[in-house]
Design a protein around this nucleic acid. Structure first.
Length: 560
RNA sequence: GCGCCCGUAGCUCAGCUGGAUAGAGCGUUCGCCUCCGAAGCGAAAGGUCGCAGGUUCGACUCCUGCCGGGCGCACCA
């Protein structure tokens, strides 16, 4: 596909003298595979665009082989000979298989991705799903383009909240069963702490003291409790990651940077941009607009979130010399990342633009923003369970003879949840509605998965065909072929914008077109050359849909 | 109050670096399982692209202002 477009561009360039003529897609695919708007030539040629299109039509037809140019109003539309388009796209897919669409353009470049990053001691809510699923998709997309990627789970395992938890464990630890039921137990302690803190000032003092001890590096009972809490939580998180099919290259909590904090602060101080304000150590950012200063050290000398993130970004740069360092973190932290980048900027570090906040919209409940403390949460595990159960119910109703119903239900249920999260532009806020997540019709993951299974089913029924395909019978599939031919462009764009929804949009549109085509063109029982060509389309479409789903982290079932 | 993000059909969203009659899904109404999977396909109805200016041959797309919603605003993360 790319080569045809290059050919068209080259012909236009030769004919008009334009260096890089811009091609776009015609409104209606039946008008052609590519369009050249002639407005840009109107001035220098001193002629109306429709007239220019007319003139160029004959000249370009003389230059192009098996591609037809046709003037339509101010546009020049190009149509690749149908059989040629089909043959070239489908053989490319067959040859590349699972690696169709991939490239090696990222070779030698490293991409660091900070994703998921849940807080220890809090159950993962559907809110945490976003960072995990978006980040993992971004990582797979970059992998497909040949980048070396480092996915880091920057666990929230440090900070004053751990002083609070340690204090809570000390006081009320015997009222819960931490060993066997860690996450709910920690949640109870967390909530209780905040309830009692108001009436009992000694509790807050105990918590603050605990965090000071933790950060002092003393290896005593406080540290032992902290270690136990984080270990118990990580085991629970891993169960969810396994269900989502997400792995990390590094699980480095904030605590990992504990030993880097001192030199991090020194480094920023040495850059000469820090100052003392109200007893705290800060970096003034007023030169960037109305932005509050970045706090590095509290009055009591302990560090903050920003300090630890600065330590992390320095460490990552030194370790990986990244091409990009992507922070897949919610939009509620935009200010934090702006401050962090401004500090890097003030330090004169030229790699500051490589650090990007890949923000995403908030997952909201009808009652408002989720809050673990206020008990206003939907737990991710419960949602995945509900989705798998719904998938199981549908399978029982529609395909009761399926071999491995539970495994398929898990694949479809989890796929529905993941796909739902990736299908809109990531900056958009989402009002969480369970019935929407559990819907398997229309623009949903299961719809795409079902399309994949249906195509696989046709392949099984047709079996092997030895006859050479008659590519010309695929004229009606031209929009599908064109889309599949553009798949690698979609990957490139999705990576550049760190936007998995570009792939969900693509695969939804492809699935829709394919289902429509399958409804009107029969594969089985045709002339062998016709069956061969249509089978090739079915195989190609299944391959591309499967490849796209895999990148999104959604299973592509052969049956469901 | 200030800053950032969002604002396209009843609802949820697409709309490529500005370009040809603004496209889907859900919901509503109608049609299609004796033909490769009805988690499907076809059709109908449904839009002052938040509002007002501006730039441009051309604006859903860029700029300014306003309105509505969301998020955030120093010792939490």
């Amino acid at each position: 596909m790319q080569s045809f477009l290059d050919e068209i561009r080259a012909a236009i360039a030769a004919e008009t003298g334009l260096e890089e003529p811009k091609l776009e897609r015609p409104r209606d695919p039946s008008m052609g595979d590519a369009a050249f708007p002639c407005f840009v030539l109107a001035k220098e040629r001193k002629a109306a665009p429709p007239k220019i299109a007319q003139e160029l039509e004959t000249a370009l037809n003389a230059r192009l082989n098996r591609i037809e140019a046709k003037a339509t109003g101010p546009y020049l539309n190009f149509t690749i000979e149908r059989a040629l388009l089909a043959e070239s796209v489908l053989t490319a897919i067959t040859e590349a298989g699972a690696s169709y669409g991939t490239s090696s353009e990222g070779e030698g470049k490293s991409i660091v991705i900070d994703l998921s990053s849940p807080n220890i001691a809090k159950p993962m809510s559907v809110g945490h799903l976003r960072s995990t699923v978006i980040g993992a998709a971004i990582q797979r997309i970059h992998n497909a383009l040949g980048y070396k990627t480092i996915g880091i789970n920057h666990i929230g395992d440090w900070g004053s909240q751990f002083g609070k938890l340690v204090a809570a464990v000390n006081r009320y630890g015997d009222t819960v069963d931490l060993e066997n039921d860690p996450i709910p137990s920690l949640l109870k302690l967390y909530v209780r702490y905040h309830e009692e803190e108001e009436d009992d000032p000694t509790l807050g003092e105990e918590a603050a003291a605990a965090f000071r001890e933790l950060e002092s590096g003393v290896d005593g009972p406080v540290r032992a409790t902290w270690k136990k809490l984080t270990d118990l939580s990580l085991v629970e998180f891993d169960k969810i990651y396994a269900r989502l099919g997400v792995q990390f290259d590094l699980v480095r909590g904030e605590a990992y940077y504990e030993s880097h904090l001192e030199k991090t602060v020194n480094r920023i101080v040495d850059a000469g941009i820090t100052e003392e304000s109200e007893g705290a150590l800060v970096v003034d950012l007023s030169s960037f607009g109305k932005i509050p200063p970045c706090l590095l050290r509290k009055t009591d000398g302990t560090t903050l979130y920003a300090t630890r993130d600065m330590a992390a970004v320095f460490h990552r740069w030194e370790e990986f010399s990244f091409e990009r360092c992507l922070y897949v973190v919610g939009g509620d932290q935009r200010l934090h990342f702006r401050q962090m980048k401004h500090v890097l900027d003030r330090m004169g570090l030229d790699w500051e633009p490589r650090v990007e906040h890949i923000d995403f919209g908030m997952m909201r409940l009808p009652e408002g923003k989720m809050s673990t403390r206020k008990g206003r949460v939907v737990f991710l595990d419960d949602v995945l369970d509900a989705a798998a159960a719904e998938a199981k119910r549908v399978i029982e109703a529609k395909n009761a003879d399926l071999a491995d119903k539970d495994a398929t239900a898990e694949m479809v249920g989890v796929g529905a949840v993941v796909f739902n999260d990736l299908k809109r532009e990531r900056v958009k806020d989402i009002d969480f509605k369970l019935e929407e997540v559990l819907s398997f019709e229309g623009d949903t993951g299961p719809y795409v998965q079902w399309t994949h299974a249906r195509l696989a089913s046709i392949e099984r029924k047709v079996g092997d065909v030895t006859e050479a395909p008659d590519w010309s019978v695929l004229a009606s599939a031209a929009p599908i072929l064109g889309a599949m031919g553009r798949y690698s462009d979609v990957l490139r764009s999705a990576a550049r914008n760190a936007e998995p929804s570009e792939i969900t949009s693509f695969v939804l549109s492809l699935a829709r077109d394919v289902n429509s085509w399958v409804a009107q063109e029969r594969v089985l029982g045709q002339e062998p050359a016709v069956t061969a060509a249509r089978l090739a389309l079915v195989q190609g479409a299944r391959q591309v849909i499967g490849n796209a789903l895999t990148l999104l982290g959604v299973g592509a079932p052969m049956e469901m």
